[in-house]
Design a protein around this nucleic acid. Structure first.
Lengths: 209, 209
DNA sequence: ACCTGAACACCGTTCAAGT
DNA sequence: ACCTGAACACCGTTCAAGT
């Protein structure tokens, strides 16, 4: 993986680090590995970016700059609000490893400001007033972000050892749940479908007051 | 922190590890620190628990065994469903560091089975049928767990550098949001209140179909 | 300005050896 | 059965020294 004579720049270091972080996760990013990949001594990295912490700062800065502005689409308030939540989900799925880093660095408000503003604006346009607006903004925001975080978790985690299906086969009757529902819960589910369903329900309830 | 002559048992190792994990986080759990705390050589730990990974397995096993069964309370379906979500939140807040470990070890279905069963049972009792039941179970489950994960994140993260208040002071007008709402969004919020509001809204919408 | 090698204080883990 | 010390292969980081 050693690139012989290409001059190493700060940008190149950040590029390489970003690649490792996105592909293998933050824990796999070691200064020595990075140096090896760039074909320089470990200490050269330190000259360019300071240290590991500062390197992660630089990653985060770049990712936040890339975060696209949110543009609501649709004609009804419900559709427009759901479209914001959907955009939030898409943005987070495209930046899997960075969210935690952003948060550690205290830049979460900055990152989610566009989405918050869009939600608030739509909710006011839909007629919501007073303290209910901020409450509704946060409810939708937490719902969307929390959902995606869990969704990513489930994707990344290894196969579950007692399968959901196995568990539901054993416990269905004792739990007072019908066979049909027990079977459904034992099967894998499509996150986008659940996200759409839950978001739509939440938005509708929030608009109804 | 050296306990001189007390015999070190497997249980004592797990106890000490659990204390470190809950107080300082998983990353701070090092075999050497653990050994120092117990007053033995590092390698003694290995005799008792195998290795670091196996030690974390043991932690998780104990925590799952401690996870209390969920007992819905309240008279209306809405109240009972909200009470399950609330119990889920309480359980997770009491076990901050363990959720990620449980998930890495593939034991998530096992941990959340009681809550899933309780939700499914209540939703069927409320008259929901067919595929909508499993969909609703997952919507509520993801909502509750996702919310708490974010809530913990926000608590643990350092002070945010551009304050939400500062950001909202600058951007309020450009974003098309009223001064009142901008001020509200610039202030810190009470997670339990938002959780209650969002959960109630979601549950109501799910029950309405 | 940019890079190197040596060194320090940390890790997790293995292994032969002690009682 | 239970514990030790030495050793190995890893970390992040600093520093004096090179061009």
């Amino acid at each position: 993986m050693v690139r012989p004579s290409t001059p190493v720049t700060r940008e190149a270091v950040i590029d390489a680090a970003l690649r490792i972080v996105e592909q293998e996760g933050v824990r796999q990013l070691s200064m020595r590995k990075l140096a090896a990949e760039l074909g320089v001594a470990v200490t050269a990295i330190y000259w360019h970016v300071g240290n590991r912490e500062a390197l992660l700062d630089a990653l985060v800065e770049r990712e936040i700059a890339d975060a696209t502005r949110i543009r609501p689409s649709g004609r009804t308030p419900e559709a427009r609000l759901v479209s914001i939540a959907r955009a939030l989900r898409t943005m987070l799925l495209a930046r899997p490893h960075v969210i935690a880093l952003v948060n550690e660095r205290g830049l979460t408000p900055l990152m989610f400001l566009p989405a918050q503003a869009a939600l608030a604006s739509e909710l006011e346009a839909a007629g919501l007033k007073g303290e209910r607006v901020a409450l509704a903004v946060r409810a939708i925001q937490y719902h969307a972000i929390g959902f995606v975080v869990l969704e990513r978790w489930t994707e990344r985690s290894p196969e579950q050892r007692p399968t959901a299906a196995e568990l539901w086969r054993e416990h269905a009757l004792a739990a007072g749940v019908s066979p049909r529902v027990a079977r459904d819960l034992g099967e894998p589910f499509a996150p986008p479908q659940v996200f759409e369903f839950a978001t739509r329900a939440l938005v509708r309830a929030v608009l109804a007051g």
